[in-house]
């Protein structure tokens, strides 16, 4: 029995026992110096998988796991610009940052704004993307393929470029939207200058941007529905509405769930649109929780306080997602 071959056999295949263990069992019967050499070879073999996974895994841990722990740790301190330069200046303040958050009117405001954005955005994205997908699914001609690409385009376009363009469209005096409205003799709308309107304007832009991706997800799901279902329903005399209501929508249940959860998580983190377009204004009407965190950290340099905000947002996202999954499970069980 050649150890060499054994050593080679160990490494790659799926069904074999882990390298470290089997290396030992292979090595034991071999006598003398051959044993040592074989062991060395087995150890070297054992390194390979770690060498392959190390760069990605270490980076993902450094930028995926460590930050959450660090945010929690820093949120109990008063870390600021001074403390950043000299760690001895940093004090532990217990839950002070958290109690301050719950008394901060701007944080309350940002939570409320985020809830409004989610309330506008999630149903908006769902309705627009589902409608477009259902219409696009009616044919597969070249025209429809081009339209599909067109609806997708905003999803891969840089957010700053989008915000710059929409900022011009929304401009009160020269913007295209108000110029079109004036043709219809409708008064100019203060798209970004009025607190109530500006939230709606940002949401509209984000719905435009976010729908295309979900159109693709719905189209993929629609194409997976077996045509036999529709044929059987047609034989039974089911009309278009009934087919939509009793076949299409139930078959899309998972896709709808997926879109709602991912859209919800994305909109809870609503950041770039208000950052570029309104910087949270007017009168903080578009300051989302993420923007609040950004400004606290990078404009006021209160890293401890900002970390507390980050952690609260993290908990909100986890709780909301968990509720979604639970309600889906309840739905499946029913």
């Amino acid at each position: 029995m050649s150890i060499d071959i054994g050593g080679r056999k160990l490494t790659p295949t799926g069904e074999q026992p882990p390298v470290a263990q089997s290396a030992l069992s292979q090595v034991t019967p071999a006598p003398g110096t051959g044993r040592l050499r074989a062991a060395a070879r087995a150890v070297r073999r054992g390194y390979h998988p770690y060498a392959f996974i190390a760069p990605s895994t270490l980076l993902l841990i450094a930028f995926g796991i460590v930050p959450i722990a660090l945010a929690l740790f820093v949120s109990f301190t008063d870390l600021d610009l001074k403390g950043l330069g000299d760690h001895s200046q940093v004090r532990f303040v217990g839950l002070e940052n958290y109690t301050r958050l719950f008394d901060d009117p701007l944080f309350h405001r940002s939570v409320l704004n985020t809830v409004i954005f989610v309330g506008l955005g999630v149903p908006g994205v769902l309705v627009v993307s589902l409608t477009v997908a259902l219409l696009l699914n009616t044919a597969t001609t070249r025209l429809f393929r081009w339209l599909r690409a067109l609806f997708f385009l905003p999803s891969i376009t840089n957010i700053v470029a989008i915000a710059v363009v929409w900022g011009y469209l929304y401009q009160t005096d020269y913007g295209l939207l108000n110029q079109l409205l004036s043709v219809l003799h409708i008064d100019a709308v203060p798209w970004l200058d009025d607190p109530e309107t500006s939230r709606f304007s940002l949401a509209l832009m984000a719905i435009w941007r976010g729908s295309g991706l979900n159109v693709m997800i719905f189209l993929a799901a629609l194409q997976a529905i077996p045509t036999e279902y529709y044929e059987a329903a047609a034989l039974d005399g089911a009309g278009r509405w009934h087919r939509l209501r009793y076949i299409t929508l139930p078959m899309l249940r998972f896709a709808i769930f997926f879109v709602v959860v991912t859209t919800l998580i994305a909109w809870l983190q609503f950041f770039e649109e208000p950052f570029v377009l309104t910087n949270g204004g007017p009168l903080d009407a578009t300051t989302s929780v993420s923007l609040f965190i950004y400004k606290t950290g990078f404009n006021h340099f209160e890293y401890g306080y900002a970390s507390a905000g980050s952690f609260v947002l993290f908990l909100i996202i986890i709780v909301v997602t968990a509720i979604q999954f639970r309600s889906r499970r309840a739905e499946l069980d029913a």
Partner: peptide, 13 residues
């Protein structure tokens, strides 16, 4: 892990 949550600690890191 939400990106916006990691913003501050990643900067500190």
């Amino acid at each position: 892990i939400p990106v916006q949550v990691a913003m501050i600690p990643t900067y500190l890191l």
